[in-house]
Design a protein around this nucleic acid. Structure first.
Lengths: 330, 330
DNA sequence: CTGAAAGCGCTAACAT
DNA sequence: ATGTTAGCGCTTTCAG
């Protein structure tokens, strides 16, 4: 493989000149530029970027830690990160952490060992097992909840949940069930708080009996729906903490012969693409996933370049989308 | 930042010994090992991996080029690649190419410039604009079609399509419409060939009138469904070239008051998770996405390590899944 | 504008 | 078993 030295020899110049020609061509004479170009082409020279990075102490790479890459919401956030990274000349190293703090270690180590300049974490912050923040590791959390102790981007989960439940209440629902995420998931916690706030303001007592814990995946939504069906006094509406469980619940209720929204109203959270495809279409909260990714990346690049970060907790606007899955109770 | 030299000084040893302690600890005395460990901890030393990689001329990184990261099928393939890569101690650099050959250049350049050791391409091969194969760039195509001129992993698209159409024919359908992908997409070409083969064997004439070109996305499926509805002599079954268009078409037909599968049977291709959630559930071809990713990664690592590659065209088994969306014509 | 030379942090002979 | 040293490919002073 040709090195810069080979090019220098071929062009009858010094390595320093070649190097300059590559980075600041305007500071080299036209004549030499031509010679250099010819030599490069003749030898098919490609600068060794590993050497460049090593020398310049800049990896121009960021790592993105994602709990589950086969999750549409994350895919969109990543897409947003990618697009601003590309713009800034950064590479994105993707790490699927399978929602485990343990697996995060390797990726954090990458920035500690100079392999990457910084990191975006898509896993919501849990005090119990978070490895971040860590000094020397520029990081931003792109899917955070309240009380994340480092730079973070999120929506107002509490407010959004409250809005959803308000909508159900205003339709006339009094008995509103919940299919939550895992109880210790920060998003579950925030959304549950919003649910309770809405109930309280409407003077409806909180009933833990009609809160069923899921795990954000399809099957947990399905099984929750079955449990609701077995209740003698079934809720007339269900607030699901994400779209996947909501769609599963719809399927479960329909299979039991219930009509949606006639017999039971359903709401989701996230606004995945599918949610406008299902029948009936799903009332849900639309998170600006792509924007969240973009903003996170922008913040990270600012940190890496030591620009001042003015705000630590970035709250992006969400949208409450009313579709066909909600209606007044019969 | 502490370097290996600082550690050597702190431990009262030479850099060579520190280096050896890190890579072959068994070749260093216990006593010194203890001293070294103490020094490392005291200085919070982290080896500079950029320097290591530069020195060893191995990036231990592969790049994965994906046409669209927000596509569930690709997400699964990537997940498979990731898991093998992690196992082998490789990092994966993700590149969203937005289905453009132009954007692929940058990523190919990464392996040419030593930033990565090899590359997995998820974009199916098109003779007209493929930048691969390229010598000096170990690469495998993980979502290929027939006639891909480099190492590739795929399913038998032709055979799978034929099987789907055979199923419809055996149910008694004689007029089977198609919603295809873009006509020049290799997967479209293969699947169309399978469709024609099935028709030919059943002595059904091919009718280009009932083939509508889509682009694998939701809206194209929806619009195709509308076009089918306007035909005086509508097909009794539609072979859709992926699940997304199939689900869209179902929605379109249902909105027009048709029943599925009573009035019209629908088949998909891919077996996305959603396809078992929709009502009715979708008859489709299940691609072993995760396996395809794993196999691709394994092949790539073999190439990188100069192990002999015996087979160039790897065909993985698919599964034909019959669900609720197909039935005999009325 | 160009050349010479030092050195980034680490590894791997080779010598001790 | 440990130390010494050269050098990976590149950039960047500093002279000329």
């Amino acid at each position: 493989m040709a090195t810069i030295r080979d090019v220098a020899k071929e062009a009858g110049l010094s390595t320093g000149t070649i190097s300059k020609a590559l980075s600041h061509p305007e500071k080299v004479t036209k004549k030499n530029l031509v010679k250099i170009e010819a030599a490069i082409k003749k030898l098919n020279y490609k600068p060794n970027m590993l050497a460049q990075k090593f020398r310049s102490k800049q990896s121009n790479t960021i790592v993105v830690m994602v709990p589950d890459i086969a999750n549409l919401f994350f895919a969109k956030v990543i897409s947003g990160i990618e697009s601003v990274a590309q713009q800034e000349g950064y590479n994105v190293l993707l790490g699927d952490t399978k929602d485990s703090a343990d697996r995060e270690k390797d990726f954090i180590r990458m920035v500690e060992t100079r392999l990457a300049d910084g990191l975006v974490n898509l896993r919501p912050y849990k005090a119990s097992d978070s490895l971040l923040p860590k000094k020397g590791v520029p990081a931003v959390n792109a899917s955070s909840s309240i009380h994340t102790p480092y730079c973070s981007v999120r929506i107002d989960n509490v407010g959004a949940a409250e809005k959803v439940v308000n909508h159900l209440i205003s339709l006339g629902h009094k008995k509103i069930g919940v299919i939550s995420g895992l109880a210790d998931n920060p998003h579950s916690v925030d959304r549950m708080q919003g649910y309770k706030q809405a109930l309280a303001k409407a003077n409806i007592d909180f009933d833990p009996q009609i809160v069923i814990e899921g795990d954000f995946n399809y099957w947990s939504g399905l099984s929750a729906a079955e449990q609701f069906c077995q209740m003698k006094d079934r809720p007339t509406a269900i607030f699901c903490m994400n779209d996947e469980m909501a769609i599963a619940a719809m399927r479960g209720f329909i299979d039991k012969g219930l009509e949606i929204p006639g017999d039971i109203s359903i709401t989701g959270f996230d606004d995945m693409d599918v949610s406008k495809y299902v029948v009936p279409t799903l009332t849900t909260v639309s998170q600006p996933a792509e924007k969240m990714g973009e903003r996170s990346a922008e913040l990270l690049f600012n940190m890496i370049q030591d620009k001042p970060i003015l705000v630590d907790d970035h709250i992006l606007p969400y949208e409450f989308v009313i579709r066909e899955s909600t209606a007044p109770p019969r």
